[in-house]
Design a protein around this nucleic acid. Structure first.
Lengths: 117, 117
DNA sequence: CTGAATCCTCGTCGATACTG
DNA sequence: CAGTATCGACGAGGATTCAG
């Protein structure tokens, strides 16, 4: 039942998965990278509400967990491209399912929230 | 693309889903309740590492989000049973998939982490 | 352009004590 | 049994500045 990753033990492997994608912006980052490889500045434009610090941090963690590839072009000005690893790609169906579920849930909630006035 | 729930707007409905199940102990609680209805004290025993405060808090949130039913037996001593709503049950396949993915991911990582000494 | 480093705030969570 | 209330520690995360 329990799983260990990076010296951290989880009661259930589901917890591990949530930890990998549950970062504040990770799911969105993965989602964008799922469509195409992106440069750092592209991601910044795509996610304006994410501070640079957080974007860098989340990308580092994703890279560290082997979900994202970081490719540096050694040149001036610097250019860095991010893309999904195979592990990252294998996550996409889950994210897609969560996307659908969330949409359905929200529309259900909306109709039941609309109490008669 | 964006979704609103409880007056909070998410860029993607996937974020909403993560918010609903991403609480520190929510996934585990849902997982247990997925197998059977449980009393508060049963959950406590099943999740010893969760403080009573957190357990109550997470259950309240799950209930508030319509994922968990709370049924109070009006008696002395008190008895409260928690179970999944239909929405909560519909979440189980996602949790199961995350469980499998996490397990697979961990075993992959393990083999590649074992660097030759 | 892509980052690292610092400071500071604010929410989360654990520990503890109390209640119907 | 099933909570609520309060306090304090801790860390995530934002704003800003500096660097290669």
């Amino acid at each position: 039942m329990s799983v260990t990753y990076k010296n951290i033990e989880y009661q259930c492997s589901m917890e591990l998965t949530l930890n990998l994608i549950g970062g504040k912006w990770k799911s969105l980052i993965l989602w964008y990278l799922g469509e195409k490889t992106m440069r750092f500045s592209e991601l910044r434009r795509a996610l304006p509400q994410v501070t640079q610090k957080m974007l860098t941090q989340q990308l580092r963690e994703l890279e560290d967990h082997g979900l994202v590839n970081r490719f540096v072009y050694t040149q001036i000005p610097p250019k860095v491209e991010y893309s999904l690893t195979e592990a990252g790609k294998s996550l996409m169906p889950i994210l897609a399912t969560m996307c659908e579920w969330g949409q359905h849930f929200a529309s259900q909630a909306e109709s039941s929230d609309k109490k008669p006035v």
